[in-house]
Computed example of a mutant assay.
Amino acid sequence: MGFIEAFAYVLSCEEQRRALYSDPHRVQAHFALTEAELETLLSASAVNVDITAELIRDKRWRLVTYVFPTVTRLLAAEGVNFNSKKYLSEVVPTVQKSDAAGLMTEATAFVEWLTLHPPNGIPAAIVDVADHELACFRLGANPRAAVAAREWRENQERESVDRKRPLGFEKSLLTASLTVRTDTYRWDVVEACQGGWADIGVQSIEPRATSILLQKVWPDVRPVISRIGAVTRSMIERSDGTCTGREIVRSVSTHASDERILETLRALVARGVLIPSRVLE
Rank of each mutant, 00 (worst) to 15 (best):
L116E: 15
R150K: 13
N120H: 07
R165P: 05
A149Y: 11
G121I: 01
L139F: 10
D131R: 14
G121V: 02
L134G: 09
E154C: 01
K164A: 15
T105A: 14
P123S: 15
G140V: 00
E106T: 15
L134R: 11
T115A: 15
D128I: 00
P118N: 11
K164G: 14
A124F: 02
R153H: 09
E106G: 02
D131Y: 12
T115V: 01
P123G: 13
A145T: 00
A148L: 07
A124I: 12
T108F: 03
A135Y: 07
A149W: 12
F110N: 01
E106S: 11
L134M: 06
V129F: 04
C136A: 05
E154T: 05
I122R: 04
V161T: 10
W113S: 04
V111I: 07
H117W: 06
R165M: 10
N155Y: 13
D162P: 09
H117F: 00
P118C: 07
T105W: 03
E159K: 05
V127G: 04
T115M: 06
A130K: 02
A145R: 00
A124C: 02
F110K: 04
A145S: 02
N155K: 12
E133N: 12
I126P: 08
P118G: 06
L114R: 03
E159A: 06
R144T: 04
A125P: 06
A135P: 15
V127P: 04
V147P: 01
E159F: 09
L114D: 05
E112A: 13
S160T: 13
P143F: 11
A130N: 00
E106K: 03
H132N: 12
A135V: 03
R165S: 13
K164L: 15
E133H: 09
F137M: 11
R158H: 13
A148K: 05
R144C: 02
A141I: 01
N120L: 12
E159G: 02
H117Y: 03
R138M: 01
A125L: 07
Q156V: 08
E151W: 09
L139S: 11
D131N: 15
G140T: 05
F110V: 02
W152Q: 14
S160Q: 08
L116I: 02
D128C: 04
R144W: 01
H132Q: 07
E151M: 13
Q156Y: 08
A149L: 12
T108R: 15
A141R: 05
E154Q: 11
A107R: 07
V161Y: 10
V147G: 02
V147M: 13
C136H: 04
P143K: 08
H132S: 10
A124G: 08
L114G: 03
A148W: 05
A145M: 03
R138H: 00
V127T: 15
P118S: 05
E154R: 06
R158E: 13
W113H: 10
A109V: 01
R138G: 02
P143S: 14
R158L: 14
P119S: 00
A125Q: 10
N155I: 03
L134N: 08
E106L: 07
S160W: 12
D162I: 06
K164S: 14
T105Y: 01
F110G: 02
